[in-house]
């Protein structure tokens, strides 16, 4: 089964009750397919709903309408918008990883424990989990004296590497990136980029937002650009996934 993720007519409208019911449309009617092992890049100006889109896929946000179907290798599909929260937790733990711009830091937990946690939750013995973690920590170029320190005291680049490491340690079949290289310096960017390229070689399906156009083009098999359709109607400012419109730029790489 080639198809891995199928997004259909996804729409997100924020209703702000505390602002007298003001509605803000993040994006409207977005559909796309993602095949196994491919990388789809999403670009668009700030505020055009890039992050909201991928957060809706990961159920960080609840989409207003539309479906997100995740297929397994045998073609059995699961609709991520309609399964229970507990089932979604299972999907997050076992199948889809998410790397954001910020590390959700657990206070007072050492880097080693943060990294090995996903494995231990799956029933690995601590020693085997630690072996794997050590291999990756070396690969990610994290100094040995930081392994048993708290990531809240790390530099931005180190934090981000721990974040990425924790996501990929249990080999998810799909990873979603929300600007993982933002706020990092050149050297750290390069390390992260190398790792993502290696992940791609290993056949992990990915969706990514990267601020840097060059990075995006380097990684993506296909880039979708979110645009706002011009006009004078009420819908004027609604960003659409302008796949078919003229404004849509679809870079086939």
């Amino acid at each position: 089964m080639k198809l891995h993720l199928e997004v259909k007519n996804l729409t997100k409208i924020f209703k702000m009750h505390i602002l007298n019911g003001k509605e803000i449309t993040a994006f409207k009617n977005i559909s796309f397919d993602l095949n196994r092992g491919k990388f789809i890049g999403i670009s668009g100006k700030s505020g055009y709903g890039k992050s909201s889109l991928i957060k809706c896929i990961y159920r960080n946000y609840k989409p207003t309408s539309g479906t997100v179907n995740l297929y397994d290798e045998n073609g059995i599909k699961i609709d991520l918008t309609s399964i229970s929260d507990y089932e979604m937790l299972g999907i997050r733990n076992n199948r889809i990883g998410y790397v954001s711009q910020f590390l959700q830091i657990l206070p007072r937990v050492t880097a080693m424990n943060i990294i090995t946690e996903p494995l231990i939750d799956k029933g690995w013995k601590y020693d085997t989990a630690a072996d794997r973690a050590v291999k990756l920590l070396k690969l990610f170029d994290i100094p040995k004296n930081l392994w048993d320190a708290f990531p809240s005291t790390f530099s931005g680049g180190e934090k981000q590497r721990i974040n990425l490491l924790r996501t990929i340690i249990d080999c998810p079949e799909m990873v979603i990136f929300d600007e993982p290289t933002a706020s990092l310096d050149g050297k750290n960017r390069k390390i992260i980029m190398e790792i993502i390229k290696e992940m791609k070689k290993q056949g992990i399906t990915m969706i990514g937002i990267f601020h840097d156009r060059k990075e995006l083009e380097e990684l993506s098999d296909e880039i979708f650009q979110l645009v706002r359709s011009d006009g004078f109607s009420d819908e004027a400012d609604v960003p659409e996934f302008a796949r078919s419109s003229e404004e849509m730029i679809n870079f086939k790489l």
Binding site: F14, K15, H17, I18, K55, R59, N60, Y61, K62, D85, M88, L89
Partner: peptide, 13 residues
């Protein structure tokens, strides 16, 4: 809902 969903995208007033 999931904790991060409720905190990042609270739906009810």
């Amino acid at each position: 809902g999931l904790t991060d969903r409720v905190i990042d995208d609270p739906l009810e007033s």
